[in-house]
């Protein structure tokens, strides 16, 4: 397991480096290394340090946030199909972000966008967690997620309908499709605190997710403070997902796929799946984004679209693998 983990970390670093290396301007390894170390041609530095690197790190951060949120929500709800996208949390975050754009609030301060996305995300997560108090059926929760997604989608469509000008329309569409193109370290900086706190909360409370393997009643029996655990995961996943959506818009399914691959490698322990799921989801998005950039299409494909094209079939497959006895 330790060797697997080291391999995963190395793969992430390699992918980040590859993202700096590959692109429409071909560049040798020495030039990329030189630019990363602050030497070499200013043009190279612009491309590598100010365009490719922040984009790659954004993809990684967004993936890590979604992967960890997915793994944590799966642990909390005890179901491998839970994920910010499926539960409507991402859509609610996106609604917050597009709302901020539509009303022109985003121009007031760079903090408005992440804050609005996070308010949306926490609203969504809290609704799901509240519903989870009343029903043990994850099918119900996912249906509530479908409802939240539809509502958020309709509200966003309404705003697009009424969009005052084509520019804000394009902005909003960007957010709904999900992309990490043209992100700067400055953008990253405005979401980073939320991502860091959200991930921190999730990691700090991960042991409780192991206890929840026993079901909520036995978990309280072994000494878990259930209310505090729920609140922590709602806050942590809400902050992380909101931060991710503020950066990149809606990117679905990576939060399902990564934990699904990791789980058998960590004895199906949600606590131990958290960090590797974050790394793997980050890796997947960095690689997917490299793919998006290299694909010879006229207009660049949106990362969120590609993620859904790959992730949604995976979701269906995982759902079909489930034995019906669970619920």
């Amino acid at each position: 397991m330790r060797a697997d983990f080291a391999a995963l970390v190395l793969a992430c670093l390699a992918a980040l480096f590859a993202a700096c290396l590959l692109g429409s301007t071909p560049m040798e390894i020495e030039r990329v290394l030189g630019a990363l170390l602050g030497r070499g041609d200013p043009g190279d530095q612009l491309v590598v340090v100010h365009i490719r690197l922040p984009r790659a790190i954004t993809a990684f951060a967004v993936g890590a946030a979604l992967g960890a949120s997915g793994a944590a929500l799966q642990g909390l709800l005890r179901n491998p199909l839970a994920e910010p996208g499926v539960l409507g949390v991402s859509a609610m975050a996106s609604l917050g972000a597009t709302g901020a754009l539509y009303y022109g609030l985003a121009a007031l301060s760079a903090w408005v966008m992440p804050a609005a996305a996070i308010v949306g995300a926490i609203t969504g997560t809290a609704l799901i967690a509240f519903a989870a108090l009343r029903t043990a059926s994850v099918v119900t929760l996912i249906l509530i997620g479908v409802g939240l997604s539809s509502f958020a989608g309709a509200a966003m469509n309404l705003m697009m309908n009424l969009a005052p000008n084509p520019f804000s329309l394009a902005d909003m569409i960007n957010w709904m499709l999900g992309s990490v193109a043209n992100r700067s370290f400055l953008d990253l900086g405005f979401s980073a605190p939320f991502l860091a706190v959200g991930l921190g909360v999730l990691f700090a409370t991960r042991r409780g997710l192991s206890a929840l393997t026993l079901g909520e009643e036995a978990a309280s029996g072994v000494g878990l403070n259930l209310r505090r655990q729920r609140l922590s995961i709602v806050l942590g996943a809400g902050l992380a997902t909101g931060g991710a959506v503020a950066l990149a818009g809606v990117i679905g399914f990576v939060g399902i796929v990564a934990p699904h691959i990791i789980r058998p490698m960590v004895n199906h322990d949600p606590a131990r799946s958290l960090l590797p799921s974050a790394l793997l989801a980050g890796l997947i998005l960095v690689l997917a984004d490299i793919g998006v950039r290299l694909m010879p299409t006229v207009t660049e494909l949106k990362l969120g679209v590609v993620a859904a094209l790959i992730g949604a079939p995976a979701f269906v497959w995982i759902a079909m693998q489930r034995r019906s006895v669970h619920d």
Partner: peptide, 30 residues
């Protein structure tokens, strides 16, 4: 406390499930 309903959410190994009995002592699985 051994409740009446004892669902196990994941196909965890026996040792891990037993180790959850040590949760209150601060034990972390693995």
């Amino acid at each position: 406390y051994l409740p009446q309903n004892r669902p196990l959410a994941w196909p965890s190994p026996v040792r891990d499930v037993v180790a959850l009995g040590r949760f209150a002592h601060g034990a972390a699985l693995g």
